[in-house]
Design a protein around this nucleic acid. Structure first.
Lengths: 116, 116
DNA sequence: GCGAAGTGCAACCAAAGGTTGCGCCTCGCG
DNA sequence: CGCGAGGCGCAACCTTTGGTTGCACTTCGC
């Protein structure tokens, strides 16, 4: 239901740090582990590990340049992830609405039989 | 950016098991830790811990009934969570679109100066 | 050529998810 | 009314994961 095979993608973007990293890469363009760590509350190593995770699920892609490693967001994968989030959100929203309708129907029924 | 104070809410629904639990509670109505564990690949204790987490952030709410504890989804909180997910998804989507436009503009420029 | 900058790898720590075992309530039936 | 069974919570323990520190290796630039 909802998320099945793409669970890796979900758990990858589940981490707040990783979401922030993606935000930074999207707004500031490609960056290295060091440059990202300067804007995050964690060390370079931690950032590097997160980048490895994101790379493994294909959300970012590394471009070695001399002694540096420039990471960039994979737009297609991120679009998929964004779509998934929206989908889950929409699913829950729809179910909530359905439940609400049912609850209202029951309430109406009870009101009808109240006098008996 | 994007998610700040409501980070607890995010991380609460970040866990796949917890999302599934919410799905089960939404589709099957209120349930206990035991009833949920029967439909999940984890033990009752694990489910109980997850329910505690969800309860702490207000996504579910417990109703003691004799020796049982019925858990139910808090619709308002879940709606907030769903909205947040949609928001992040939309934000990323917008940024991707913007980047794409810029990239296309640059590409157009390069094509213009190709002959020089 | 050599120091400085950027990475990766390994060891170590702490927190979170998961399991098992136990004891306490509560229900229901003889 | 007593007592077994079902449902829960608590506690101890294990494993995975995010985080840090320390070190060795490459690459740039003077």
């Amino acid at each position: 239901m909802s998320t099945a095979v793409d669970d890796d993608l979900w758990s990858a973007i589940g981490d707040p740090i990783r979401r922030t990293m993606i935000d930074l890469l999207l707004t500031g363009g490609p960056g290295t582990a060091t440059s990202l760590s300067e804007r995050l509350p964690v060390t370079r190593q931690a950032v590097s590990k997160h980048l490895a995770v994101l790379d493994r699920v294909g959300l970012v892609h590394a471009a070695p340049a001399g002694r540096e490693r420039h990471y960039q967001v994979d737009e297609a994968q991120l679009a998929r992830a964004a779509a998934q989030m929206s989908a889950v959100g929409a699913t829950w929203d729809a179910r909530l609405r359905r439940i609400k309708r049912i609850a209202e129907a029951i309430d109406r029924n009870r009101t009808d039989n109240k006098g008996e």
